[in-house]
Amino acid sequence: MRSHAYPGVVVTGTGVILPGADRPEAVTAGRGEHAEPVDPTRTLGRGGRPRGLRYKDRATQLAYCAADAALTDAGLLTDGDLTVPSHTVGVVVSSNTGNLDTVVRVVDTLRAGTTDALSPMDLPKVSCNVVASSVAIKYGLRGPNLMICNGTTSGLDAVRWAATMLETGRLTRAVVLGVEPDTAPTRTLLNGAPPLDGAVALVVEDTASATARGARVLARVGGHARGTGIAECVAALSAVNPTPPVAWQVPGRTVPEEVLPGVPRNDLTTAWGPGSGALGVLQCVAAVGAFATGATGAIYATAGDDDHDATAGLVLTPPSDSR
Score class of each variant (00 low, 15 high):
residue 140 G to P: 06
residue 140 G to R: 10
residue 141 L to N: 08
residue 141 L to S: 07
residue 141 L to Q: 01
residue 142 R to Q: 11
residue 142 R to N: 09
residue 142 R to I: 04
residue 142 R to E: 09
residue 142 R to V: 05
residue 142 R to M: 14
residue 143 G to M: 10
residue 143 G to I: 12
residue 143 G to Q: 14
residue 144 P to I: 05
residue 144 P to C: 13
residue 146 L to F: 11
residue 146 L to M: 14
residue 146 L to A: 15
residue 146 L to I: 13
residue 147 M to A: 13
residue 148 I to R: 04
residue 148 I to E: 10
residue 148 I to Q: 01
residue 149 C to E: 07
residue 150 N to D: 13
residue 150 N to A: 02
residue 150 N to F: 02
residue 151 G to H: 05
residue 151 G to K: 13
residue 152 T to W: 00
residue 152 T to A: 14
residue 153 T to R: 12
residue 153 T to N: 09
residue 153 T to G: 05
residue 154 S to G: 12
residue 154 S to W: 00
residue 155 G to S: 06
residue 155 G to F: 03
residue 155 G to N: 07
residue 155 G to Y: 04
residue 155 G to T: 14
residue 155 G to C: 06
residue 155 G to D: 06
residue 156 L to T: 12
residue 156 L to A: 10
residue 156 L to E: 04
residue 156 L to G: 04
residue 157 D to L: 03
residue 158 A to F: 12
residue 158 A to L: 05
residue 158 A to H: 13
residue 158 A to N: 10
residue 159 V to W: 09
residue 160 R to W: 14
residue 160 R to E: 05
residue 160 R to L: 06
residue 160 R to A: 05
residue 161 W to A: 11
residue 161 W to P: 02
residue 161 W to F: 13
residue 161 W to G: 08
residue 161 W to Y: 07
residue 162 A to P: 01
residue 163 A to W: 08
residue 163 A to C: 11
residue 164 T to C: 07
residue 165 M to T: 05
residue 166 L to F: 11
residue 166 L to G: 05
residue 166 L to V: 11
residue 167 E to T: 10
residue 167 E to S: 14
residue 167 E to H: 15
residue 168 T to P: 02
residue 168 T to F: 14
residue 168 T to I: 11
residue 168 T to V: 09
residue 168 T to C: 12
residue 168 T to M: 01
residue 168 T to Q: 15
residue 169 G to E: 03
residue 169 G to S: 14
residue 169 G to D: 11
residue 170 R to C: 12
residue 170 R to K: 02
residue 171 L to S: 10
residue 171 L to R: 01
residue 171 L to Q: 12
residue 171 L to T: 07
residue 172 T to N: 12
residue 172 T to F: 05
residue 172 T to C: 00
residue 172 T to W: 01
residue 173 R to D: 03
residue 173 R to Y: 12
residue 174 A to D: 03
residue 174 A to N: 06
residue 175 V to N: 03
residue 176 V to K: 02
residue 177 L to R: 11
residue 177 L to E: 02
residue 178 G to M: 04
residue 179 V to R: 01
residue 179 V to F: 00
residue 179 V to A: 01
residue 179 V to N: 05
residue 180 E to L: 01
residue 180 E to A: 09
residue 181 P to E: 05
residue 181 P to F: 06
residue 182 D to G: 04
residue 183 T to L: 06
residue 183 T to F: 08
residue 183 T to V: 05
residue 184 A to M: 11
residue 185 P to L: 11
residue 185 P to Q: 15
residue 186 T to E: 01
